[in-house]
Write a protein that binds this DNA or RNA. Structure first.
Lengths: 216, 216, 216, 216
DNA sequence: CATGAATGAGCTTTCATTCAT
DNA sequence: AATGAATGAAAGCTCATTCAT
């Protein structure tokens, strides 16, 4: 019932049906996991018969891969659109984090597919998510490097350290995304703010009363 | 024949057999995931017949739950043992993180079960992992709170912020754990150091040339 | 695009379309067998859409039956055309065998449908092939009977013996047809010669140095 | 009902169950063909559940292959046992043909699997039957060669001619086997006699009143 | 204590066939 | 005349689970 199933309108053009099926698949895979999700359930949620799902999307594996790619592309696009190159590095970082939290909050099933399900199952799928994650880590790595250059202290941070910091930051963001989704009263901006404070100032500074401010 | 599989050594005491089965189960669940792991494979890896697995562990679901509990308890014990109450908050935090990275590196299948598999599947299991995660978050929250009290600024950090920070910190640690496990030349102590720098000093301080040092 | 598939040439007269479909069907049934051949594959090979196949030929079963009938009629026509009534019985037999081998070599898919596929599957089709086989057996029986009458010894060969001999002769011909088709350097005339020697002279005479000759 | 299903006696040793399944499979494959035979039907006819069939015989393909091998071995054994090396070549040939007709008459489903079904379907199976057929053709080829040597005229029959004759003879036998099975009143010995007459004397001699006699 | 034998239920996938246009 | 859209039904295969010994 609701937005996905769409009033049993028969005989729709292929592109529309395909989108409905992918939506249903993302939701089902996100909820149940790859193995536990059944093609029957996906077809029923999409409001079509199972053979049609196979006709358009070939197999469970291909369908899952298609879901991963679609959701990964959407997430990357959301983050990259938000990061405006003209701004200072810390502002770019903030914008990227906010976009990340907003997008994952708005697409909880897609995020579940990417973060929980795809990485859990074998090689064919993990690779696609790894590509997406590496893309995001690369963006973050670039921003941290840029921030360091802006501070004229670039020599102090070795490449490996930057990589580790980016991993930590992305991991923190992923973890917060799950937390913010479950605790429904935490908004994307709050989450982004918390994380920026944490990342930028560190716990030590925070406890000394200093904090980073988005608005300034 | 040999240490691992036990060349048809019959009539072993129940506790030993049970441990063998759980070891096999953790490995199989960690590798394949809950649904893809078959009781056949687990029984064969444990070197026993399938009915014996059922006799001792009742069902796949209970077996998985038992695995989660065992691995969660082991991880929490490792972390809590490392955190000596007498030390300063930042040292306690460092010790806990180092223990966390060491334990997950030494128990990759157990860590996979906790981090990847258990959270992926429906209600019965997620609860168990949530308990463990909450326990760790509580430890971290306590440490942060203690550190804040040491700095006499406890009022500045609201409870929700502390919870969010702890969530972010644990997520960063999980992400670094995966990173350190894959990039084989990154040791647990290095990972702990990177994370402490990130967490304690923040990116801002780091770029200003300050960093946290374990040895001092 | 070209002679076989017809590059999307729309609006062809029904007879032509129907022939294309039957050709595709014979090829597909001959290659894959009745069950393994799919209507999808047949339609695609014929260059038309599936509903059109159904419009013209109603069902898979009817389509297969139509294939059997067409190929059986063609084979029988080829054999009967070759058998000129005026000749001596052995010459007629030789001509019929030669025509049989030539036709099966030129229509391998049709022959496969008749010889291998049609007899393999249940009641609806076996009957059609039996009709064709009986027709050929009847022709051969007639030839043998005629030869016997020419030798004025017709009372010596009981009807059942004649039927058995015709059956054996046709089986030998079918077996040689397969052999000649696989061993590519054996021509239809060679096969016919071998069979005439076998049939007319028998192994005993052959080994005594006698053999049958077409040219005399 | 009858010999195959066997009174629903549960919990039988594996070897027995496996034989029951193979019997049921041969019957079903022989009747319906490889594709049309369903594992459900085979399992039901064998009086067991489908998973047991898979547990013991792995897959439909392997099951079919096992059937082919078993029936081929049985047929070859029957023929080779009958051909006693001490006898004259024509007597050996007669004995082999008689054994062939007897065995195929007693094992109609096995013969159907070998002659009709296995050759109809793709490479994996056709190869096994080809091996069996080649074995029989080789035996026949050897006997014809031996008969020629006994007649001291071996130079007159080229190898290829012998091969062709053997093909024809085996084909004739195969065809008669089918005919004799359908026309139920034709015994194996009659069929063997008819074929020996045909093969040894040829139609020409037969019509001149000569014939080969087994009893002398 | 330990297991070989056995199955109900469910999953992915395919196919012949039909509508609505 | 011709087709894109859609499905009911069934098939191959696997798995968690249980007896009987």
């Amino acid at each position: 019932m609701g937005a996905v199933k769409g009033a049993k309108a028969k005989r729709m053009p292929r592109a529309v049906r395909e989108r409905q099926m992918m939506d249903a698949a993302v939701q089902t895979f996100g909820r149940r996991g790859y193995r536990a999700a059944s093609m029957d359930e996906i077809a029923e949620l999409a409001g079509v018969s199972k053979p049609l799902v196979y006709l358009y999307l070939n197999s469970k594996e291909e369908l899952f891969t298609a879901c991963i790619r679609r959701e990964a592309d959407a997430l990357i696009a959301a983050v990259q659109t938000a990061v405006e190159p003209g701004l200072a590095a810390d502002r770019q970082l903030w914008a990227g984090l906010a976009a990340f939290f907003t997008h994952t909050a708005e697409n909880p099933y897609g995020w579940a597919v990417l973060h929980r399900q795809a990485r859990t199952h074998g090689e064919p799928f993990a690779a696609d998510v790894a590509v997406m994650r590496d893309t995001i880590v690369a963006v973050v790595t670039g921003l941290i490097g840029a921030a360091a250059r802006e501070a004229h202290r670039d020599q102090e941070l070795a490449d490996r350290d930057v990589a580790g910091l980016a991993q930590a930051l992305v991991g923190a963001a992923e973890s917060l995304a799950g937390w913010a989704n479950e605790a429904e009263d935490v908004s994307a901006k709050e989450a982004a703010g918390t994380l920026m404070n944490f990342a930028w100032m560190g716990l030590g500074n925070l406890m000394r009363g200093e904090s980073w401010s988005h608005s300034r």
